[in-house]
């Protein structure tokens, strides 16, 4: 991967770029490429987000639900999601955050410049792998709740209205619960002039 590291390791010579930093365990964590032992099968996708409800995090594990969808008509569907659908969801007082993410139509947008051009991700096999995966969905809504009951209560209340919209704009949609590990809390304000995570 092509990355510039910041010096963050304190040594006898002061702060240096960590010489042991490698990020070379990817092929051992992720799906490896059989004929390329140093590589794995990446699938970085650029997403365009619409924050319906800014995320608020308490000091407890939250209930995070991803709602994947494929749109019948991409342009019209996006518009409906961020207007009609959003206006219902945005009133959910139990909801700790809701973000609609649309996948960029350029499937290489988050790969280009991040992985070397000669890497598997840019090969025909890598592109086919990404195209197949992206064919399943156009985006995903992320919901943050304190618990699943809160989601069910909110959804029950507005089910008819949301279901009607879903029938109209989605050719398919499904939910996945995820365990969010907050590695770096997003800071949506401008970055301060010092190292901050």
């Amino acid at each position: 991967m092509q990355m510039m590291l910041e010096p963050t390791r304190a040594t006898a010579e002061g702060l240096v770029v960590d010489p042991d930093w490698a990020l070379d365990d990817c092929p051992r964590i992720f799906d490896p490429v059989p004929d390329r032992p140093q590589e794995f099968k990446p699938c970085h996708l650029r997403m365009h987000e619409h924050v319906l409800l800014p995320v608020l995090r308490t000091e407890c594990k939250a209930f995070k639900l991803m709602h994947f969808f494929k749109l019948k008509d991409v342009t019209g569907g996006k518009q409906t999601l961020v207007s009609d659908y959003a206006s219902v969801v945005a009133k959910w007082h139990e909801c700790q955050g809701c973000i609609v993410n649309f996948r960029d139509s350029d499937l290489d947008a988050a790969m280009r410049g991040f992985y070397p051009e000669e890497s598997w991700g840019h090969s025909p096999a890598g592109q086919a792998h990404r195209t197949e995966f992206c064919g399943f969905f156009d985006g995903a809504i992320e919901y943050h709740f304190l618990n699943s009951e809160d989601f069910l209560n909110a959804r029950r209340r507005d089910h008819e209205a949301l279901y009607a919209i879903e029938q109209r704009i989605f050719s398919s949609c499904w939910y996945v619960e995820v365990d969010e590990n907050l590695v770096v809390l997003p800071n949506r304000n401008p970055a301060p002039a010092f190292y901050f995570r």
């Binding site: 390791r9 304190a10 702060l15 960590d18 010092f194 190292y195 901050f196 995570r197």
Partner: peptide, 12 residues
Amino acid sequence: DEYRAGHVGYHN
């Protein structure tokens, strides 16, 4: 500020 980077970065 170097301490910040060393503590928040490598050490943490």
